[in-house]
Amino acid sequence: MNNHKTKLLTVITEAALESRLINDIEQLGGLGYTITNARGKGSRGLRSGSWEANANIRIEVICGPELVNQLAEHLQRKYYDNYAMVTFTSDVEVLRPTKFSD
């Protein structure tokens, strides 16, 4: 098996931001993303996901280190002040590197 190291960006944030974040990811050159519903608790309180206004999502993007940094900085600048948002990156290994970066 031939593994290639690359990066994973995980964003946990308010469901209200979904369409704007997809737009941001695509504009900055992300080739794909995965979105799941999420719930939990953080500095902005309990987000139980029981209805629209307190629903959370988890967005995952696999891409190269440069784009990961660019995305993380962009999100921090644009959303951290006013939205519940947690972002973290991790190292991952993938089998088909061309699928995730140009």
Binding site: E14, A16, L17, R20, E52, A53, Y79, D81, N82
Partner: peptide, 17 residues
């Protein structure tokens, strides 16, 4: 409690929901 919170979240994010 549905349409306005969603719109305010996007358009006036500095308001405390």
């Amino acid at each position: 409690y549905i349409a306005v919170p969603a719109a305010m979240r996007i358009s006036v994010p500095e308001a405390n929901p």
